[in-house]
Design a protein around this nucleic acid. Sequence first.
DNA 1: TCATGTATTGAGACAATTTCTCATTTGGGT
DNA 2: ACCCAAATGAGAAATTGTCTCAATACATGA
Lengths: 141, 141
Amino acid sequence: MEPSGHLAEALRRAGYKLTAPRKAIVQVLEQEGKHLSSNEVLVLGRRIYPLLSRATVYRTLELLTNLGLIRPILLNDTAQRYVNGEGGHHHLVCSVCGAVFEFERCGIDRLAAELAERFDFRIRSHLLEFYGICRTCQTHA
Amino acid sequence: MEPSGHLAEALRRAGYKLTAPRKAIVQVLEQEGKHLSSNEVLVLGRRIYPLLSRATVYRTLELLTNLGLIRPILLNDTAQRYVNGEGGHHHLVCSVCGAVFEFERCGIDRLAAELAERFDFRIRSHLLEFYGICRTCQTHA
DNA sequence: TCATGTATTGAGACAATTTCTCATTTGGGT
DNA sequence: ACCCAAATGAGAAATTGTCTCAATACATGA
Ligand SMILES: [Zn+2]
Ligand SMILES: [Zn+2]
Ligand SMILES: [Zn+2]
Ligand SMILES: [Zn+2]
């Protein structure tokens, strides 16, 4: 998830204190892969800063969300998961087994620019998910 | 949400019993607008079938989800909300205030066909969300 | 360096949402 | 009308998210 120190730097620039719990959380977000739930952030964060509390995880994730640095998404779980707030995220989600496949290119820059103008909206990222039935679940049917 | 009786008919065709609780739930989904949470389905469903239990709502929503007839999404809430499992859903979501704007056309049919072929995936719907800062929150900054 | 004031934190109570269990009921094929 | 697997309701339990408040730690300036 982006260059290391990216999130901490953005927090500092926005005028927030760079505390030990926050450092642990952003380090987890930057190091570990994608799609982390708040509970996963808590568990991983405690390896770095054992006192870390659940409330602080939620508070920091909300903070980063409001700054547009991360964004919540929904996958199979019932839990919210967080992805990088910049750029694009592209999934194929199987409605039967919950499997998630990723792809790279989507070609919606044109549409994004159009919408940004029409709604006077400053776009920072997007999520494109196709929902349907994966190969395996098609044959098992 | 689609022609009336659509969901009930699909359930029946898939071999599931058409019970009173299920009829109430699909009627709610078809009549009421979009983005219903499970609790909203429960409350509205009880107007039709007062005995309706929370567990049955969750069970039926999961059933419909696995059949690809509806799909869960995430909005401002922490609760899962359900939308029609066919076609497209398009949102602009403000990361600051949580406001959600909708738009109609997206023009990704080409990409959808390409991915369906590449992943051997039977696509039934898609969700396209742009994430950023709305007009109001831009000025209040 | 050190004192100061405020933002931030941890702990746990609390609330909301989702899942599970199991005895009972019911739809639909016969 | 009968039968039985499928489905249900009720509530316990688990998971996820929010809130409160006294204690702490960061950043700023002396
Ligand atoms: Zn994209
Ligand atoms: Zn699948
Ligand atoms: Zn679309
Ligand atoms: Zn806004």
